[in-house]
Design a protein around this nucleic acid. Structure first.
Lengths: 201, 201
DNA sequence: CTAGAAATTCAGACTCGGTTTGATTTTAGA
DNA sequence: TCTAAAATCAAACCGAGTCTGAATTTCTAG
């Protein structure tokens, strides 16, 4: 049974993120201090830091949590890693059409507006690159695994970025999702067959 | 005629970086405060910030300055972008054998030791991604250009990382450079022909 | 050579993100 | 109801980075 303690904590957590996102959307990430957030959420600054490791975490929660390494690790035996990843991204694109992105989009707007945050979001990908690389080593060998992992991680990140940029730009979610589906296939075709030589508008 | 002013500035700049690198190598990036650096270099904190935009800049200067977009932009007409980039990286690998990396390696050691710095370094070369993407648009179209640029930038970054990791690990420069040369060809083969399906030790 | 003008340096105060402390309140469970 | 654990809090503290206004140094025109 969900104890009173747990409920209150969850409630406070939500209140903090909600107030913070509201303020960020109003005045930008750098225009809001932790003190203001704490005050708006009616907690002490120390309490804020008991809930979140930092200001960035407020906006970055749930960003870049795709477990690429896990997808590869859990794939059925004999299946090429790229196929497993493609399938996973495909599923994501399909579900994207029926998801409510409004909250995520406000968060993404804040992220894209702040260079520091964009960088931090990037740093998240950094870690997952090496996890993925480790998973690919036995398949491709050290050197190729690191390179393949880098290409894959960068590709997935770019797919997401493009998707959210469309949403931020005001594209209707269903259209953005359709574009994402197309881009996903294109992306994995590039990964599997290489970048063409160009001059082919 | 190099005015006295210019000379003194250059001298101070060098003194700051030198003292800072020394301290970083001793106690790590986070173990040294700007105050200490300023004191060691015998300048005021305000002066430090007049020379460098921040503590990170001390270690990151010269990192991630590869002008990928420029290489593509300046390539002879009719040449595929990937070929131009491969040639450029190849040249780098060749020159790497005859370069003195000692200073750069200390800097890299500091960077790899601090997650924050690794992230920042990552973000730097990652910004080049969009410049490169812009350069590739007319060649590949919007979507493919963004994806190709991401793959290329991630690849180049990984090549550099691997190279420096070898050097940090104590590999002799000539050997590291030889490995880099091999990896470079492998990397661009992957980019051009795609990631193989695996199971090919 | 000299008198400013311009650039540089500097100490110190200040803001903000983040940590620590130690006390106080709230909840859980017997 | 009593106690121990957990949560909250105010306030002091640290380091990065900015700002200010004054002092110093270099440059340049007369």
């Amino acid at each position: 049974m969900a104890g009173l303690r747990e409920r209150k904590k969850e409630q406070t957590r939500r209140r903090i993120t909600a107030e913070a996102l509201r303020l960020f959307a109003e005045r930008g990430f750098d225009g809001v201090s932790v003190n203001e957030i704490a005050e708006a959420a009616e907690v002490a600054k120390a309490t804020f830091f008991a809930y979140f490791p930092g200001k960035e975490a407020l906006v970055l929660q749930g960003v870049g949590e795709e477990d690429l390494a896990g997808i590869v690790a859990r794939r059925p035996p004999g299946r090429p890693p790229l196929q497993a990843l493609r399938a996973s991204c495909r599923t994501f694109a399909e579900e994207a059409a029926e998801t409510d992105w409004t909250e995520m989009v406000t968060r993404m707007r804040v992220i894209f507006d702040s260079p520091a945050l964009s960088g931090a979001a990037n740093a998240l990908l950094y870690r997952r690159r090496w996890e993925l690389a480790r998973e690919l080593v036995q398949e491709y060998g050290q050197a190729a695994a690191a390179l393949a992992a880098a290409q894959i991680a960068a590709t997935v990140l770019t797919l997401q970025e493009t998707f959210f940029l469309h949403l931020i730009g005001g594209a209707p979610p269903r259209e953005a999702a359709r574009t994402l589906a197309r881009d996903t296939e294109l992306a994995f075709d590039l990964l599997e067959h290489g970048i063409p030589h160009g001059r082919e508008k």
